[in-house]
């Protein structure tokens, strides 16, 4: 056999073991938790009532609800293209905002408007602290705090 073709055969004999092992290990390593991607904005209709809004230079964040206050949404509108391409929004666990222990709400990209459903259980809380986290560079970008977001201001 020509040395070159022999080398090809040797490489592929090694690959016959390495590739399947690598693929299977990679598959097994997929985190059990629901991946981030599925928490992107749903195409759900916007609820009609705006409860509270926070303005930022780059984005507007609002809490929305229906007239009976049974469902809640977080609306995220990017005003300009953000300087981080992809980030996730967490509801911070109290105290501190270690994203590892926080509850994931959704993922946003540099442009566009997003709507995320908020779990009804949240309605009891008097304070909603959101953390915008850049998971690629592992840095907290912003912290947004809503006070009594699920009640009209008295």
């Amino acid at each position: 056999m020509k040395p070159l073709r022999k080398r090809h055969l040797q490489v592929w004999t090694a690959w016959a073991i390495l590739l399947p092992v690598g693929i299977v290990l990679g598959w097994l390593a997929v985190p059990y938790q629901q991946p981030v991607k599925l928490l992107q904005s749903s195409a759900a209709d916007l609820l009609p009532v705006i409860m509270q809004t926070k303005e930022h230079n780059d984005y507007t964040v609002s809490i929305r609800s229906d007239h009976k206050h049974t469902a809640w949404q977080l609306e995220w509108k990017n005003k300009t293209a953000l300087t981080y391409p992809s980030a996730v929004i967490y509801k911070a666990g109290e105290p501190g905002n270690d994203p590892g222990k926080a509850e994931l709400i959704g993922r946003i990209e540099a442009r566009g408007d997003y709507v995320f459903e908020l779990k009804p259980g949240l309605a009891q809380s008097s304070r909603l602290k959101l953390v915008l986290y850049d998971f690629i560079h592992e840095a907290v970008i912003d912290t947004i705090i809503f006070k009594n977001p699920f009640r009209y201001p008295e």
């Binding site: 690959w15 590739l19 990679g26 991946p35 991607k37």
Partner: peptide, 29 residues
């Protein structure tokens, strides 16, 4: 495998990659 697959829930992508690798390995051997 360590990139996009880690963010995907659908096993079909793993199967496609595995099928591609198995095809190439078989042909070469």
């Amino acid at each position: 495998m360590l990139g996009v697959i880690q963010y995907e829930n659908n096993p079909v992508f793993v199967i496609i990659i595995l099928a591609g690798a198995v095809t190439l390995i078989t042909l070469h051997l």
